[in-house]
């Protein structure tokens, strides 16, 4: 099937199998390997991207469902060489270790902060329930989210 998707501002037309997941489309068709795959049941959130401005788990979306939509991945989050405030905050606050969950965490987190500009720790922890990190124990991710909220 033919799909037309705008990813990080660039329009792509591709012929894909109907069962192809959006995450595989991004990674294998477009070479955008920043979006990672951490599970096969849509639990871990590593593959979170924005579709039409909302955060979605790209392993739970078919490429054909993204037809005509706008997708932003971690590669497209920094603008004109300037890190998104949440990217900068993850760096500053040591919100990552192995970095595998990080793209999804930042994509989910940035969408969360747009809807909750002044979150409490508890709201952040609750808001990140759909994203799993095995390295950081979450504490510095929460700190990064708070710090980014102050700078956004």
């Amino acid at each position: 099937m033919k799909v037309t998707v705008t990813v990080n501002g660039t329009r792509y037309e591709r012929e894909v199998e109907s069962r192809m997941l959006l995450v595989h489309f991004l990674r294998e068709e477009l070479g955008l390997t920043g979006t990672n795959i951490g599970c096969d049941t849509s639990q871990c959130g590593a593959c979170t991207v924005h579709m039409d401005g909302k955060s979605v788990k790209s392993c739970a979306v078919l490429a054909v469902q993204a037809d005509g939509r706008e997708v932003t991945t971690i590669e497209g989050l920094a603008q004109d060489g300037t890190l998104h405030p949440l990217q900068a905050a993850f760096w500053e606050k040591h919100g990552l270790q192995c970095g595998y969950c990080t793209p999804g965490m930042i994509m989910a987190g940035s969408a969360f902060l747009r809807d909750h500009p002044h979150p409490t720790d508890e709201e952040i922890r609750h808001g990140l329930e759909g994203n799993i990190c095995r390295c950081t124990g979450y504490q510095n991710i929460v700190a990064a989210m708070k710090s980014a909220a102050e700078n956004m």
Binding site: L32, T33, G34, T35, N36, T73, I74, E75, L77, A78, L83, Q87, F90, W91, L96, G99, Y100, T102, P103, I106
Partner: peptide, 12 residues
């Protein structure tokens, strides 16, 4: 390590 990891440029 972080700049490559927070921008999706790291290669696993």
């Amino acid at each position: 390590e972080d700049p490559r990891l927070i921008t999706g440029k790291a290669r696993y």
